[in-house]
Design a protein around this nucleic acid. Structure first.
Length: 589
RNA sequence: GCGCCCGUAGCUCAGCUGGAUAGAGCGACGGACUUCGAAUCCGUAGGUCGCAGGUUCGAUUCCUGUCGGACGCACCA
């Protein structure tokens, strides 16, 4: 389709130039106006459309007249004649592609390299590091993390599908007052209990104590100060404090990693804040020497940000300790040494835009050439219909709990359809459906925008959902299984593209043909929704197609074989695409 | 106050670099299973694209202003 698009563009361009020459107008006048290709609003208007408005002034003619003249020229163009037919629609020049030819090309491309369909090499040789998730170790993952994780993992896979070499990293925030609060509450109420003794997932166990810190505050007004004091003890290396910290962090991180495994995300390297929080200090001191930073009257080291319209920013406290920004400066430099990336993408919520703006600017000021290739993939908050999730009010949607309830619903769904025997491992299948539901829900939206998560609605598996797409994949798989076991009429038939030229088939073929472009666009915009939307449209087109076109039961062998080939092609694209948006493909459900 | 993002059908969201009567899903209403699994399909109703200007042959899309909302503007992460 892409090829047809560019070919037609060239044909139209030639015809326009010829028209200009005829009128004695220099062809150069058109060079600033390359033909714009678009998709007509209705399929019966054609497959490609070229608006002729822009040429009215230069060619001194009405757009509709130009369209007619160009159409006439194209009829006589032998190259264009082989690509389809043209028709004018007022000021538009519309193209009807040669359907069998496109069908043949698409099926051939898929047959040649099924797994590679949709991949490209545009980012070949490029090393891209992606940081995402970056959890705190005082509580389990919640819905917001799921959006972050899904985005990070999906973008990583999409970039890899465009040829990039991707390195995924996770920064575990295992240090700070937040973890000290959990520790303090545990010291007060723990009594030696463990996740094992209580039968609670270990990160939830730690999170429960973080919540209980609120109780502690009521009992002990000095609780906040005690948490600060505990942090000081931690930094001083107090053995008892370190031991408890280690134990509780182990629980928290262990539980969090279980959730990663469950949701299918992974990392090439974990960084721990506790081990690197002092880095960056040397870098800042060096910047002070070279005059990039300055020492304020109170003794703190600061950076002047007036060149980007901001105030000054402290980088080292007057006591010489480092802050968040200092760490991130050091960390970026260290990471580039660890794995010399061409680009580093930080998947972090939009709340931190200021932070990254400043960080990138500082690194540029320090003279790191790669600073220009740092990118903050900023995503919006996930809110509830009632508003923002609040830990204090207990409205936070916990990731594990959400997945559990979705899985439970999927189990019920399987039972209500009497498919327990057909799906094999019910629990495993239900878990994959739950994942499909969550990931599609989170990735179909534009990353930068805040989104509302309606628990009730999101529990539906109907309509534009992950399970809908999975279902179409399962239905096609079912057909292919039947065919393999000898059922149906496709055996011995020949695949003939001209038998797939109907409107329903054509709509499906177009979606299949568009998929590679969606993968490319998703990489350009760091936006998986391009892929998610394409897959939904594809599944939907397949659903319409097979609803009124019998595949295996088509009376004629060749028709059955041809339709089956189309279905198999659709399945391949679904399989490839779903993996890019972290949705498990299901053979049966 | 300043910065940044967002305001499209009752709800949740699409709408690619400005282009042909603004699209989906959910919800509502009405249809389709002795036919490859109905987690499906088809139809109906529903929008002055927050508002006002501007640029353009043409603006949901670009610019300005304005109203409304979210998030930032720490020697917290």
């Amino acid at each position: 389709m892409k090829d047809a698009k560019t070919l037609w563009k060239a044909c139209v361009s030639r015809a326009l130039e010829a028209l200009a020459r005829e009128k004695g107008i220099p062809a150069e006048a058109l060079s600033a106006l390359p033909p714009a290709v678009e998709v007509p609003p209705k399929p019966e208007l054609g497959d490609l459309g070229f608006p002729m408005f822009p040429y009215a002034k230069v060619l001194r003619a009405a757009p509709a007249q130009i369209a007619q003249a160009v159409a006439a020229a194209l009829v006589g163009d032998p190259e264009a004649a082989g690509l389809g037919t043209v028709r004018t629609e007022g000021p538009y020049l519309n193209v009807f592609l040669d359907r069998p030819a496109v069908v043949r090309d698409v099926l051939e491309a898929l047959g040649r390299d099924p797994d590679g369909y949709g991949r490209n090499e545009s980012l070949a040789g490029r090393k891209i590091m992606v940081e995402f998730s970056s959890p705190n170790t005082n509580k389990p993952l919640h819905l917001g993390h799921l959006r972050n994780d899904a985005l990070g993992e999906s973008v990583s896979r999409i970039l890899a599908a465009n040829g990039a070499e991707v390195f995924k990293i996770d920064l575990i925030n295992d240090r700070g007052v937040h973890i000290c609060k959990s520790m303090l509450a545990y010291m007060a109420y723990g009594n030696g209990r463990t996740p094992e003794s209580e039968g609670v997932k270990s990160d939830h166990f730690v999170g429960d104590y973080y919540v209980r810190f609120n109780d502690l505050k009521k009992e002990d007004p000095a609780a906040e100060e005690k948490a600060q004091a505990l942090l000081v003890k931690w930094e001083a290396g107090d053995p008892d404090t370190l031991a408890l910290w280690k134990t509780m962090n182990g629980w928290a991180e262990g539980g969090i990693r279980q959730t990663y495994e469950r949701t299918g995300i992974s990392f090439d390297k974990y960084y721990h804040e506790s081990r690197i929080y002092v880095t960056g200090k040397d870098e800042v001191l060096r910047g002070l020497e070279s005059g990039v930073f300055f020492k304020a009257e109170d003794g703190s080291v600061r950076v002047d940000l007036s060149d980007i319209g901001l105030e000054t920013k402290v980088l080292l406290r007057k006591d010489g300790t480092s802050i968040y920004m200092t760490q991130d400066i050091g960390l970026a430099i260290e990471r580039h040494k660890d794995w010399p990336f061409d680009q580093l993408i930080y998947v972090v919520a939009s709340e931190q835009q200021y932070h990254f703006k400043v960080l990138f600017h500082i690194l540029a000021k320090l003279g790191y050439p790669w600073a220009a290739n740092l990118y903050h993939l900023s995503y919006g908050l996930v809110n509830l219909p009632e508003g923002r999730m609040k830990t204090r009010e207990g409205t936070v949607v916990d990731a594990d709990t959400l997945l559990d309830s979705l899985r439970e619903l999927a189990v019920e769904e399987i039972a209500s359809k009497g498919r327990e025997d057909a799906v094999g491992d019910i629990s495993e299948t239900a878990e994959k459906i739950a994942l499909g539901a969550v990931h599609f829900y989170l990735l179909q939206a534009t990353p930068s925008k805040d989104m509302i998560f309606n628990p009730k609605e999101s529990l539906s598996f109907n309509g534009a959902t992950g399970p809908y797409i999975q279902y179409m994949g399962a239905r096609i798989s079912s057909m292919l299984r039947k065919h393999d076991s000898g059922e149906g009429n496709a055996r011995g038939g020949t695949v003939r593209p001209e038998l797939l030229a109907g409107d329903a088939e054509w709509a499906l073929i177009r979606r299949i043909a568009e998929y590679p472009e969606a993968v490319a666009q998703a990489a350009r915009d760091f936006d998986p929704s391009a892929v998610a939307t394409c897959l939904y449209d594809l599944a939907s087109a397949f659903s319409r197609f097979y609803h009124d076109n019998p595949v295996l039961t088509a009376p004629d062998k060749d028709t059955a074989a041809s339709r089956l080939a189309l279905a198999a092609a659709a399945r391949t694209v679904l399989r490839n695409g779903l993996s890019l948006v972290c949705i498990p493909f299901l053979e049966t459900m």
